[in-house]
Amino acid sequence: MEVLTGWWDDYLWGAVIVAKVFMASLSLMILFGLLGAGAKLSNNKLAQKIAGAYTVIFRGTPEILVILLLYFGSAIALTAIAKIFNPDVRFVDVPPFWAGTIAIALIVGSYATETFRGAFLAVKPGSIEAARALGMSTLQTFIYIRIPEMWRIALPPFGNNMLSLVKDTALISIIGLNETLFVAKQAITVTGKPFTMYIVVGLIYLGFSTLITLSVMGMEKYGNRTTVGAR
């Protein structure tokens, strides 16, 4: 344990970065997922096609390729654009934080698309029809019947999406984000203890996973309070 002395605060900052990437990519992932599900459920053929291509591409390509492509690709694109305005520019650097965040949000968003779409379709038409028959408007039915029902159905797979997201943050170290794996690499060059240093990274991620699992469990309990039968 002594080898870790002096590295705790580096790991802590690494963990803070993991948390930041997670929060930023989570909101983007939800956005992509909702857009994707909306497009797939819409009557617009073009929107359906685009969303279909989106899920096939991002579910069929290795995560690391998406991250590399987005990072190096956007750097080249931005450099090219910058050169139009200032021919002296040699290279525009894209922050790995944003390239990585957008990449993993796009990847997990393609899974979230199916989560949201599946939940929308799984709401029993009976309760929707009943609400309409009782005279509730389309909007009222959507807010009071469909959304709560959808949320309850989507929660378990959505929890898995969040776990994928937090674990995928580790991949961003490949393009140089100074999160926990990056910290471990530095610590190893100094201490020569790779096992110890990587185990700490593993434990930090296990902590994040546990936190997510527990909060999803809490939310599920709340969401399912109406479905527990009388005893």
Partner: peptide
């Protein structure tokens, strides 16, 4: 299931 596969690869390859 709670840790990234990349970390698992590094633990096995660099760590062990």
């Amino acid at each position: 299931r709670g840790t990234p596969i990349l970390v698992q690869i590094f633990i096995v390859y660099y760590g062990l």
